[in-house]
Design a binder for these strands. Structure first.
Ligand SMILES: [Zn+2]
Ligand SMILES: [Zn+2]
Length: 683
DNA sequence: AGCACGCCGACT
DNA sequence: GTCGGCGTGCTC
């Protein structure tokens, strides 16, 4: 066998690629096991080298070429390459972390327990085929039909904003369009924001495509799957065995080679943005992937992100509106409840409690939405003003009810737990009070005034165990629950047939957040919760408690004029020079003391001025003053950030490419932990 | 990111 | 004397 040289990417931060000698047949896109220092790693071959670029005695040998899956295709590698360039990470830091565990750990292949490797092991495992329900025939209305037709007649790449409220039948458009592309022999990639939303959609997909697609040609891909299941779905995608892949943001990296249509449901949702490691936006990568593959893309939402709305206005995306609610759906009556004039009872305006009582008497479900888990956001001493504080973070600790009948303080940022002090640590006062309320306290209060009601709380705490979310939602669906108390977890997607009333308690808390996207996000969330009520009968009602009923967010809910709201926000963003009219990147530095983090950011900022001057474009990119984060300290680490902004995306990208190597050098010298985020969601 | 190498404090 | 603390520097 002819010896060759290969360039391999590994999951090593800020390092490009490493060259190896290879005595086996090998091609680009194959995974290999290589020695690296004293350990072994799995890497991916990205280049075949005509000759070694290094001293031959520094080059080591590839130990094994893995061939239990086909090599990654050129188009898949191009996607990874784009993400690497755009998000400013090494290619290895993109490729390896997106692979299922078994495919990136050499131990899965070595040793006597490896049993033919992870793929063979996953294939051997018996899995019960999911039951398929018989679909009920669906008739599309004129707008839906027109949308489907336009999508299916796309010539190559086209991006569609499918704009329609809950119940307007977006899912039907997805499914009908998907059917056409399946008939053409192409694959469908469908993204949803949350794991919770996959079961309902999977059932619908399986039912609808049962005639055309075998059960094993449909797969689900998200982080809630066990390692083996995730690996099986990925392997089937890479082997070309799938027709439909349904998943959360990570599914955007699935190695499908013949996609015909990509669908991003609830495209505005912040969950599409990865918040750690490679901070990518699956929505934006979906646009790139569709463009590269030359296929249509559907971005669906009732409340599109302003980025998407802006593109729809400029003509880059085609807007398809669904204004008619499907025939079998009803619009709930949305009302604002002015809390300024009311005496609240445990956060409830009296009329809201009465409305719940009425629904109870009629045997209908109510939902209370409160975006705050735990019993109370903080413990407080009325005598001296002491509040419960996390010793490791600069935040309050939250009072939680524990499974017994006790209480505990928890930090929502670092997980720190502590006992509730019986007296004030500062002044010895014996009467510490919980301040405010979370879902646990609301649940307790409602149970107190409606003793006979069956109340269920659904939040991150009550659904911690695997599968418990599914079970709780089932309870609600089967009607065993009268009142549902929940956080944003209950806001999305679920279609509760007997739900007549939705009450929103603390919407205002999001109104004055420091984040410039707050109004947009609040509106999306409120419309989404509102969409839970009265979908299947008349008389559905949504009550939103607010102290600011005149605010445009609330007024837009009443007059149902999203376009006007979005246009106003866009005008404001243009005036203030914010996205989507500018492009941003954010560097966050972490250190024991914020002074050190700020000093580092200040130094790299000064370096930036030199880079910009050298490029002859001193004003193309603006770097703001470094600032401490709003929550300064988390788990004993203090953080500061530096915002970088430009009116031109290419200029920003060019600048980052020039500047980041110097940032790295300074970071190394100062032993500073930092990371960069392109298109940050929150600043 | 690991993991070794290295040079200083308190322990069988 | 050596066990182990984690600073620093490489890994094709
Ligand atoms: Zn006190
Ligand atoms: Zn904490």
């Amino acid at each position: 066998m002819q010896v060759s040289w290969v360039r391999v990417v590994l999951d090593i931060p800020r390092q490009d690629a490493f060259d190896y000698r290879c005595e086996h047949p090998v091609q680009i896109g194959q995974r290999v096991i290589v020695p690296f220092g004293s350990r072994q790693l799995i890497g991916v071959v990205i280049e075949l080298l005509p000759a070694p670029a290094l001293d031959p005695d520094q080059i080591r040998d590839v130990e094994q070429v893995l061939d239990d899956l086909p090599a990654f295709s050129a188009s898949w590698l191009a996607l990874a390459q784009f993400a690497s360039r755009y998000y400013q990470r090494s290619l290895g830091e993109v490729i390896l972390p997106v692979l299922p565990n078994g495919l990136r750990k050499p131990t899965a292949y070595l040793g006597k327990r490896s049993a033919g490797g992870p793929v063979a092991r996953a294939d051997r495992k018996k899995r019960s085929a999911p039951a398929t329900v018989v679909p009920s025939p669906i008739v599309l209305n004129a707008q839906q039909q027109q949308a489907v037709q336009q999508i299916c007649e796309s010539d190559g790449y086209a991006a569609y904003l499918l704009h329609g409220v809950t119940g307007s039948g977006k899912t039907e458009v997805y499914l009908h369009a998907a059917l056409t592309f399946l008939q053409r022999g192409q694959q469908i990639l469908m993204l949803v924001p949350e794991i919770n939303l996959t079961p309902q959609l999977e059932t619908a997909v399986r039912a609808r495509f049962a005639d055309l697609v075998a059960p094993e040609e449909i797969a689900v891909f998200h982080s809630g799957l066990a390692d083996g299941e995730r690996l099986k779905a990925w392997a089937d995608a890479q082997r070309g065995k799938l027709k439909v892949l349904l998943g959360t943001r990570m599914a955007i990296f699935a190695p499908l080679d013949n996609p015909g249509l990509i669908i991003v449901d609830e495209e505005h949702d912040a969950s599409y943005k990865q918040q750690e490691g490679l901070r990518y936006s699956a929505r934006d990568l979906a646009v790139w992937r569709a463009h590269q593959a030359g296929i249509p893309l559907i971005l669906g939402s009732a409340t599109p992100s302003l980025e998407t709305w802006h593109h729809a206005l400029s003509g880059r995306y085609t807007r398809l509106s669904l204004e008619q609610r499907a025939k079998t759906r009803f619009l709930p009556d949305i009302r604002l409840v002015d809390t300024r004039k009311a005496k609240l009872n445990q956060g409830f305006e009296p009329g809201v409690l009465e409305a719940i009582r009425t629904r109870l008497e009629r045997g209908e479900q109510s939902m209370v939405f409160l975006n705050r888990r735990g019993y109370a956001p903080v413990m407080h001493c009325a005598a001296c003003g002491w509040v419960s504080q996390c010793p490791r973070c600069s935040v309050h600790t939250v009072l939680h009810r524990t499974p017994g009948s006790g209480y505990q303080l928890q930090c929502h940022h670092c997980g720190f737990q502590s006992r509730v002090p019986s007296i004030c640590p500062d002044c010895g006062n014996q009467d510490l009070q919980p301040l405010g309320r979370g879902t646990q306290r609301v649940e307790e209060f409602l149970q107190d005034i409606f003793p006979a009601a069956r109340i269920q709380r659904i939040d991150a705490d009550s659904t911690r165990l695997k599968g418990s979310a599914l079970r709780l939602f089932d309870e609600v669906h089967t009607g065993n629950i009268d009142i549902l108390v929940g956080t944003q977890m209950v806001a999305k997607g679920h279609d509760f047939k007997r739900l007549g009333l939705v009450a929103v308690l603390n919407a205002d808390s999001m109104l004055f957040s420091a984040d410039f996207r707050a109004p947009e996000r609040l509106f999306a969330q409120l419309l989404q919760v509102a969409g839970r009520a009265g979908r299947h009968a008349e008389g559905g009602e949504v009550l939103i408690q607010t102290g600011y009923p005149d605010h445009t967010v609330y007024q837009t809910l009443l007059n149902n004029d999203f376009p006007a709201f979005a246009d106003d926000l866009l005008a404001e963003r243009q005036d203030t020079g914010l996205p989507p009219f500018t492009f941003q990147a954010l560097i966050t530095a972490e250190a024991k003391s914020v002074q050190r983090a700020l000093a580092f950011l200040q130094e790299i900022r000064e370096q930036a001025a030199t880079v910009l001057a050298d490029e002859g474009e001193p004003d193309a990119v603006c770097l703001y003053d470094p600032v401490p984060l709003r929550i300064l300290r988390v788990a004993h680490v203090e953080r500061a950030q530096l915002l970088i902004e430009s009116a031109s995306r290419p200029a920003l990208q060019r600048f980052l490419q020039q500047w980041l190597p110097q940032v790295q050098a300074i970071g190394q010298k100062q032993r500073m932990r930092y990371f960069i985020e392109v298109d940050p969601l929150e600043i």
